[in-house]
Design a protein around this nucleic acid. Structure first.
Lengths: 251, 251
DNA sequence: AGTCTTTGTGTCATTTTTACACTATCCAAA
DNA sequence: TTTGGATAGTGTAAAAATGACACAAAGACT
């Protein structure tokens, strides 16, 4: 599953990196996968950073982002979208960053442009403590982060904005939920991403009217309250909808 | 006005360029500023390309985009927004591109990442034939272009999409119009960008209800039909509106 | 049996959207 | 000076979407 092969014949480009904002949803709130850089630069900068790496000269940007994502999580074929390019000259020249930079094989004096991506992961598919990858990576609630290394906090903010905007237009939220989910979970997901409360009844009405969910003949089990029915996202129905020119969820 | 100084002590970064999609509006349709690369690669690739250049190591991406825009048009303080980063490995390795690449000082074998921007220019502010800059640049109707050099057609498409999306959220269209404009001109502008017809009466009602236009006590002169009244965009009123949480024009 | 927790549902008032056609005003040409 | 051509400017009615709001039902647990 995890590809650790060295790339024979290809070289790292010292000037271009990709950083990934990997979102998850723990059924309560939005989370993001961050890496603990350890004590190396604890004195001068935040320990937590977004996963990222330089790109190889023989891969395109999307490939590089997928590679970074796979190297960290072992996951392939994940929803991934570009946020944009970031980079001030000399932004990484601080002495305290040198060790960290070496660890990702960057040249401390090089000027680096970062292309940021965000991706949406079913949190159940990547449980860091149960994984062999990156022992120093973990899910952090998006709203509890107040700083990140380098310009990663700006990148996180941009990724949140892009996600917020995108979910008003395309039903990408399902990538954050289990295959089978309840309307309440979907409701909480939208509230988390849009960062505002949504009326329960109005939300359910709006979603159901779109007719892009399959109501499974199946209910939650073992919950200490009335069990909810489970739904699945129906790609075919959504395709029908878009072919009618639909491009706005009205949130 | 035009800054032709060489940048002393700074160097071009051979791996990162910016390309600008400079939109204009001729009161009929959306246009874009393209450069004719001449006969150099006429046999193998389209002559027309977007303006762009490599970045210097001591400027950030936004600065580079502003520089490219100013070098071409002489204009400063123009609306400018990043579209995203583009770049496949070896995308520019075709033999036929070498001369052109030399002319923008790129190394033909280098792998180049391009960061694309779009900007909105009042067409009256840049009339190529009346300008001392770039004799080989000119406005082309966006919908009449069917190909561009390199991956510039993809970039143009992405820029159009971004503009379309953005104008649904922010009143940036005014950057394409003269200070004083008519509602019909604004109407045609929105139709051009959204690429669909909008009912005249409904459009006018919607715009007027927003209350972000000042109705000047002034009318068109010399037109061979009933003269229209002129309007101005009112930044203060728009600020009030946004502070009420407004973030959607409903197109 | 009773308590706790979350699910699931309907209505009404208001606002927004859509579709649609005719008169007014100016210029120019006869 | 009359006429024709062109665009500006305006209202209404039906349909759809939105927003606000409260209580009974189902299961787990004690």
């Amino acid at each position: 599953m995890h590809n650790n092969q060295k790339k024979i014949g290809s070289e790292l480009n010292p000037n271009v990196s990709v950083d990934c904002v990997i979102f998850g949803f723990d059924l309560e709130k939005l989370t993001v996968l961050v890496i603990d850089r350890g004590e190396i630069s604890a004195a001068n900068g935040p320990r937590l950073a977004l996963p990222g790496n330089l790109i190889y000269d023989d891969e395109n940007l999307d490939q590089a982002a997928n590679r970074v994502l796979e190297e960290l999580t072992g996951l392939k074929n994940i929803y991934l979208e570009q946020v944009g390019a970031f980079g001030d000259p000399f932004r990484i020249h601080k002495e305290s960053d040198r060790e960290w930079l070496k660890s990702i094989r960057a040249q401390p004096d090089a000027r680096v442009i970062t292309v940021a991506y965000f991706s949406l992961v079913k949190i159940e598919d990547y449980l860091p403590h149960a994984s062999s990858f990156a022992k120093n990576a973990g899910w952090a609630p998006v709203n509890e982060l107040s700083e990140l290394a380098f310009d990663h906090f700006d990148i996180l903010q941009a990724a949140k904005d892009k996600l917020k905007q995108k979910i008003k237009i395309q039903p990408i939220g399902f990538n954050l939920l289990p295959e089978k989910f309840t309307l309440s979970q979907l409701h909480r997901l939208y509230e988390s991403i849009l960062d505002k409360p949504l009326d329960k009844r109005n939300f359910r009405r709006k979603i159901q009217k779109l007719n892009i969910l399959s109501n499974l003949k199946e209910k939650q089990r073992g919950v200490p309250h009335k069990p909810s029915s489970l739904y699945e996202f129906n790609e075919e129905k959504y395709q029908e909808l878009t072919q009618k020119g639909f491009d706005n969820f009205g949130f």
